[in-house]
Amino acid sequence: MTDLAVDVGRCLLANPVMPASGTFSEALADAIDLDRLGALVAKTVMPEKRAGNALPRVAETPMGMLNSIGIPCKGPEAFVQHTIPAFKRYRPPFVASISAGTVRGFADLAAQVVAGGADVVEANISCPNLEADGHAFAVSPKATARVVQALRAATDAPLWAKLSPNAPNIAEVAMAAEAAGADAVVVANTILGMAIDVERRRTRLGAGMGGLSGPAIKPIVLRMTYQCVRAVRIPVIGCGGIATAADALEFLIAGARAVQVGTATFRHPTTMIRILDDLDAWCRERGIARITDVIGTLEPFETPQLEAAEDLAAE
């Protein structure tokens, strides 16, 4: 058995594979052994009850999907009373994903979920900032710094900031989160997109626009993960289009300490377990004893890029 343990900041995880927020619930225990995962991450909770967006809420795209689920939510009390205990029955650390329209809302909610038993707070800062024209916190390093500072002051629990790929410069946002005291950054949420039904001349999503996820976004998010790894010292958790151990390895080699798996679980609920088994097999076949020996091992090209390109052209 390969030693798959990784530390993400102050958090020691049994392995680097965990679900992405909003694509997981305790019902997945009907299909896989949740105790095998590195961590359990719940759907984002917000300070107030919400119904979520208009239907249709999903549309499929080539090798991916758009969603405009919104954040339907029964509020923090129900979350603390029902959701947290449901997840705490399992061994892996429980990550509470939280969001709010205001800095104060974020801070209060963090204190509430930590008091309720959450082991880690993941701040989903891709939501609109109601104090700044509704632009997402995560598109601005300044707004990100403000919210992470407030969260840091509100709780001592490990704090992960989940960044948005829609930020003009995601590495700068990662640096702002690090400076404000985040223990790790998650790269990233969904990429804003749109699809139109040409016969009906209507958007395919009831909300008009939505977030693209799945294999279609993997190269973009891998690039962003690599940029963030180079920009910050805190751990980076990769998330976007990961469906196989090979995908996970790309992120780990690029320097991610762990990965989150989202949309792939919709196609194959056993994806995360398969990734773990295949990571183990891949390492054993190569005599690699610890997964940490793989992290951040991207090799530079030995030949100048131009020659390499010429070699390719000659083949």
Binding site: A31, P269, T270, R274, D277, D278, A281
Partner: peptide
């Protein structure tokens, strides 16, 4: 390249559970 190597899938992770693939 590493990531193009096919990785074997070892077993059906849902065996014995209520919901299976």
């Amino acid at each position: 390249m590493l990531h193009q190597e096919p990785l074997p899938s070892t077993h059906d992770a849902s065996i014995g559970r209520r919901v299976g693939e």
